[in-house]
Design a protein around this nucleic acid. Structure first.
Length: 217
DNA sequence: GCGACAG
DNA sequence: ATCTTGTCGC
């Protein structure tokens, strides 16, 4: 890691510096391999998981689980600094190169427009999206009850993401662009990755993998 | 100043 | 994130 902060002020400075590198456009061929990333904690111990699925079949093709210790506290807005070091190690250990990173958290739907998904995308160059279970910034209109319904997530005068109903009647998930992808593409990916449950399969498998890693790691 | 605040 | 029983619904 070339530049890694130890204080909140330094971390914010890093975000301000890197935010200009985010590309909001579909870059590269449609992803064949899609990775889900998540981290679980137990006090100061952590387990980071990266699980790669075949985009067409949703079958698992690779995974990496990294055990480590926390090096940065959880601070809303600076969440990425807590998770990125071990997630990057996990990505390095993969034998395939994912064409899309599905992150557990926000991308552009962040106070400085540089959430975890943007940060990971910029650092790796891999297209990335954020899928969060709750909003952080932004509000949206009520959305329809059916799977596939969406509503813009608006913060100030900007559309920073979308609320997406992935199953009939379930709470929406909040999707935002991380890097090298458009919001429309991000939403399409999330719906394809969530054929049966509220959360994308990538997220579900990464969640299981990191919890298991903590448990018997 | 006060509260809210991704995981 | 994590702590945690029962409960509502298919």
């Amino acid at each position: 890691m070339v530049e890694w902060p130890t204080t909140a002020a330094e971390a914010i400075a890093v975000q301000e510096e890197l935010r200009g590198l985010v590309e909001v456009a579909d870059v590269g061929a449609p992803a064949r391999y899609v990775a889900g990333l998540d981290v679980a904690y137990d006090r100061d111990r952590l387990a980071a998981a990266v699980v790669v699925l075949d985009a067409a079949t949703l079958g698992e093709v690779d995974r990496a689980v990294v055990l480590g210790e926390t090096t940065f506290p959880y601070i809303p807005g600076l969440f990425a600094f807590r998770e990125i070091p071990s997630l990057l190690t996990g990505l390095e250990r993969l034998t395939v190169r994912p064409g899309l990173l599905v992150c557990d958290g926000q991308g552009l739907a962040h106070p400085r427009r540089f959430g975890l998904a943007c940060h990971l995308g910029v650092l790796t160059g891999i297209p990335s999206i954020g899928v969060a279970k709750t909003t952080y910034v932004g509000t949206h209109q009520e959305l329809g009850h059916e799977r596939g319904t969406t509503a813009d997530l608006v913060d100030g005068d900007e559309v920073v993401g979308a609320a997406v109903r992935t199953q009939d009647g379930v709470k929406p998930v909040y999707v935002s662009v991380g890097h090298r992808v458009t919001l429309a593409t991000a939403v399409a990916h999330v719906l394809r990755l969530a054929p049966a449950y509220r959360l994308p399969e990538t997220t579900r498998l990464a969640d299981r993998a990191c919890r298991a890693g903590l448990r018997d790691g």
